[in-house]
Computed example of a mutant assay.
Amino acid sequence: MGRHVRVANLEVWTEQVGAGPDVLLVGGAGDTVESWQFQLDGLADRYRLTALDNRGTGRTAMPDGPVTVAVMADDAAGVLDALGVGAAHVAGFSGGSIVAQELAVRRPDLVRSLVLQSTWALPDVYLRSWLRFVQWLVAVAPSERAFLEGFFLDIYTARAHEDGTVAAFVEEMLAFPHKQTAEDLQRYLDAFLDDGTPDRPARIAVPALVLAGGVDSTARPVLGRAVAEAIPGAQFEAWPTECHQPFQEVPGRWNTRVDAFWQQVEAGATPRPREAPDRPAEPAGRG
């Protein structure tokens, strides 16, 4: 069961499951702890996993004041401190991966390793244009359903649209009682548009695994590769048939790969950079 955790003046919604080495899961735009359900279900036999709703998302309110990457990293650090978690393996996707990077720089005592899915160092012209597109799309879409269907074109593979997985995601989100407002999503995205820390990856001093989707038109592999090249010793893998969120579309593969990385770190081994061949997709679905 989830619960709110007090972090400074904010009540942050968290969910913690499992037993073992600690893992912190940090989601992206509009995504709540439910976005990590395949990981909360599939890895709890090996790890104690903590997920959170970022400020302005789900059951965590959006307080007054600026929303920045640093502020969200402090929120994540505050959750770990409040729960009495020491250093954790930290995984983040999309905007959550940037928060994870910042957390590793601001509070290295709390981060044992990083898994960065669909990440970047600084949004380039293309990604900035896409972030602004989402900001106005959420404001002008004729309905919530229309926004989700349009937004998900860039988030999930064509196969997930064709096999009904995306349609199921849309229905789940329409039924979700703790919806993010258009204004809160826009403020969240502003944090990344305003972010100006291109040297952040080079300041990271923990083992890192950087994953990218080969058909992701937003956080493209070239951006993830640049992050991996800047982090000393980081591993980089581009999965050619995957998009922005393979941890939902191919969760078995994603969990297996991330578990292997964490086990290397736990064993004190130094994960070695490598490129991995793609594999056939498994059935999609978020559960």
Rank of each mutant, 00 (worst) to 15 (best):
D53G: 01
Q135E: 04
D22G: 12
L52V: 04
S113H: 08
V105T: 07
V79M: 07
W13A: 01
V140A: 12
D184F: 00
E172L: 10
L49D: 08
P277H: 11
R257E: 09
P240V: 04
M173C: 04
V67Y: 14
A8M: 12
R59N: 06
R6H: 09
T157L: 05
Q186T: 03
T197I: 09
T241I: 08
V222L: 11
G268P: 02
A175V: 00
V33P: 05
L153D: 05
L83F: 02
D184I: 00
E34S: 15
S35R: 13
I98Q: 06
P198G: 09
V69M: 03
V105N: 06
D163R: 02
T270K: 13
L43A: 15
Q117I: 13
G92E: 06
V125G: 04
A87C: 03
G86Y: 06
Q39M: 14
Q117R: 02
E249G: 06
D278R: 10
A121P: 02
E282F: 00
G233D: 03
V222E: 13
E149P: 00
L43Y: 00
P207C: 08
F93C: 13
P123T: 08
W120S: 04
D154N: 11
G78L: 12
V67M: 15
F247H: 13
R257M: 08
R220V: 10
G268D: 09
G285K: 12
A281V: 12
A260T: 05
R253P: 02
A61G: 13
E11V: 06
Q248Y: 01
V5W: 01
R257C: 02
Q16Y: 01
F93M: 08
P280K: 13
R59C: 08
V258R: 04
V115P: 00
A230E: 02
F147L: 10
P240H: 06
D64M: 14
T68P: 01
Q37I: 11
V33W: 14
A284H: 11
W36R: 06
D31Q: 15
R46F: 06
R112K: 13
G196I: 02
A104Y: 07
L127M: 12
D154A: 15
R55D: 14
L83D: 01
E249C: 06
V125A: 14
Y188T: 10
R253K: 09
L189G: 02
A230W: 05
R220S: 00
D41G: 13
A141L: 05
E242H: 10
G30H: 09
R253A: 10
V7H: 11
D74N: 00
G78I: 09
R279C: 04
A82R: 11
R253D: 05
L137E: 07
L43T: 03
W254T: 09
F93L: 07
F38N: 14
P283I: 12
M72Y: 04
V210Y: 05
H244E: 07
S143Y: 03
L40E: 00
L40M: 04
R203V: 08
D64N: 14
R59Q: 15
Q245D: 07
G30D: 07
P207M: 14
V206D: 07
R159T: 13
E242A: 11
W120I: 07
D199Q: 12
G30C: 03
